[in-house]
Design a binder for these strands. Structure first.
Length: 547
RNA sequence: GCAGGUGUUGUGUAGCCUGGUAGCACAAAGGCCUUCCAAGCCUUUAGCCCGGGUUCAAAUCCCGGCACCUGCACCA
């Protein structure tokens, strides 16, 4: 297929376009129009349906505005503030806090402090010895002010954290059994330095994320990895393999069974929504490319006119997130496993209040406080007390049949906007015969089920077509009625936005209640009874296959 | 963020250098015609990215901003 300017079609036909156009637009922000919104919605529905039909997956719909502590615990807060300073002579860039840290000084991440420190220490460019410019802050997260004297809030850079912090709710919902997974469809926000290329790099973007939780002793999903569909796998050693997810799991290229499982799920999803699997691959991240939280990551990539673009990341996040939230919040986000019943001796340390009171009645509050602070000695009453004297250590027998562990997380994260970009790239083409644009997306994600068209807008054909249109609407089909322009022009109009079926009402309809149904891809038509229309939508009666 | 280029009806563009009524094609709307794949004819709608400056007069020249494209940097 010949190349078509996707953005031009998207703008002209209301698929997507730049936000706030009448005010000049904002870079990195795009809106979905009447047709794009429908395509997007249908993709989301398929994804949710596929995920939820696993059985042990449930949905979470959390807020985008996020508590600062969550992002501090997740590591985003530290990494999303970039204090850079540039050499005024050679242009080399440094992180201001790194430069100062290198001199053995604890850097305070504050613009003024960093700026003053650089002047005070008379720091120069490491490369050329040139003068360093001003410290510039780059905030990579959008900050939301709460009010005077209150800590700011942040827009989430990923939906994942909401699922981690609510792990316990879902653990209970699934009656304390692993594995299970949580999904979220929602928006994330990243203040990209230079967003570019339409839907590829956005500052507000749609994602469909799944967090799956496992006992590290049993890192297995409940179903087996896909064994029929083959795609390309590119390893971090540069090896290319054409195989099924089951193959790559069995031969050890992909270490984790759940990762292989989700790869298979992704392939099934992608083939269903119109990604060309011949322009698709999984690419393993190289060591230096891995995120701060991940030990193994595979990206699903699609080949488009922008080159290979990441449309999904499947990351092994290990115990990183839950461990950090346990530490930061002090709350229990553990899962438990049943172990063999056993007797254990627990060491118990107790403060001997009676002895303290007997020895030093007036000093007792001081001594108790010192013990609670974990001190071992205390200067009091003119001498040094050994606090160990006031602690009783004894052993207690307990029966244990469960133990805590931090679950492992495997995350398939789908970038919805990039998926839409890739679908349009793979399916928008020119017809060989006529050179007209048509969009060959699957019926399931097509923006409307059908267009109902009277051959002529007269002789009662328009009324009849309108009746059929109304009836299909009543039956909950999404349909368009159109009687303007020649019939050929209208066919083309709907081909261009991927509507698969055109129902044409002609003079025979008036006689025998039949219409023609036309398929977008073959342009072939069949004459069918009006009441058979619902049966044909979603079929390709010309080759006996779906669509 | 830096450097260079660009910004004209819904879309694609001409006009800009050399200041003086903004033109074309497609799309869209109305009409005539037309019995199945963007036919034809008539009519209509609709635009100089935003702000400032120079000038009698700015789409055009100058300044600032915004946006887009390319390259570099960034992309956790």
């Amino acid at each position: 297929m010949k190349k078509v300017d996707q953005e031009e079609v998207a703008r002209r036909r209301g698929i997507y376009f730049q936000s706030f156009g009448i005010y000049g637009g904002i870079s990195g922000l795009f809106d979905y129009g009447p047709l794009g919104s429908r395509i997007k919605d249908r993709i989301v529905r398929i994804w949710k349906e596929m995920m939820l039909s696993e059985g042990n997956i449930a949905e979470f719909d959390g807020t985008a505005v996020t508590h600062q502590e969550v992002l501090k615990a997740s590591g985003h807060y530290d990494r999303f503030f970039d204090y850079s300073v540039e050499c005024t002579e050679c242009g080399n860039r440094y992180r201001a806090d790194d430069l100062i840290q290198k001199r053995g000084i604890e850097a305070i991440v504050d613009r003024e402090w960093l700026q003053n420190k650089i002047l005070e220490l008379n720091m120069k460019c490491e490369k050329c010895g040139g003068k360093l410019g001003d410290v510039k802050i780059q905030k990579l997260m959008f900050q939301v002010e709460q009010g005077e004297g209150q800590e700011p809030l942040f827009l989430r850079p990923e939906t994942a954290q909401g699922m981690f912090v609510n792990f316990k709710e879902y653990y209970r919902f699934f009656r304390e059994k692993l594995p299970f997974a949580i999904i979220t469809v929602g928006r994330g926000y990243r203040n990209e330095i230079s967003p570019r290329r339409a839907l590829y790099r956005l500052r507000e973007f749609n994602m469909m994320e799944c967090e799956s939780f496992f006992d590290p002793q049993n890192e297995m999903w409940i179903h087996d990895p896909e064994e029929n569909l083959k795609v390309t796998f590119l390893t971090n050693e540069g090896k290319e393999i054409h195989a099924t997810p089951r193959d790559v799991y069995e031969n050890g290229v992909v270490k984790s069974q759940p990762m292989a499982y989700f790869m298979g799920l992704a392939i099934r999803f992608y083939s269903r929504i119109g990604i060309d699997l011949n322009r698709f691959r999984f690419r393993q991240h190289k060591k230096e490319e891995l995120s701060h939280y991940s030990s193994e990551t595979w990206d699903a990539e699609a080949l488009t006119d922008l080159g290979w673009i990441e449309i999904t990341g499947i990351a092994h996040r290990g115990i990183f997130d839950l461990t950090n939230h346990i530490k930061a919040s002090g709350k229990d986000l553990y899962a438990q496993r049943v172990v063999q019943r056993k007797e254990m001796l627990n060491k118990v340390r107790e403060v001997d209040y009676d002895k303290i009171k007997a020895d030093f009645p007036e000093l007792s509050p001081k001594i108790i406080a010192a013990i609670k602070d974990g001190k071992s000695k205390l200067e009091a009453g003119g001498r040094t007390l050994d606090l160990a004297d006031y602690i009783i250590e004894r052993e207690e027998k307990v029966t244990v049949d469960r133990e805590n562990f931090v679950p492992i997380v495997i995350e398939p994260a789908f970038g919805l906007d990039r998926i839409i970009y890739a679908i349009l790239d793979h399916n928008l083409g020119l017809r060989d015969e006529s050179g007209y644009v048509f969009l060959k997306i699957p019926y399931e994600i097509s923006p409307y089920d059908a267009a109902v068209l009277p051959l002529m807008a007269r002789d009662g054909l328009d009324q009849k077509a309108n009746e059929i249109y109304e009836e299909l609407l009543r039956q909950k089909f999404t349909v368009i009625y159109d009687d303007s322009g020649s019939i050929g022009k209208r066919y083309s109009r709907y081909d261009e936005v991927g509507i698969v079926y055109c129902i044409t009402v002609d003079y025979e309809t008036l006689k025998d209640d039949t219409v023609t149904i036309r398929h977008r891809d073959t342009r072939e038509q069949l004459r069918i009874k009006v009441n058979e229309i619902p049966k044909y939508l979603g079929l390709n009666p010309w080759n006996g296959k779906k669509n």
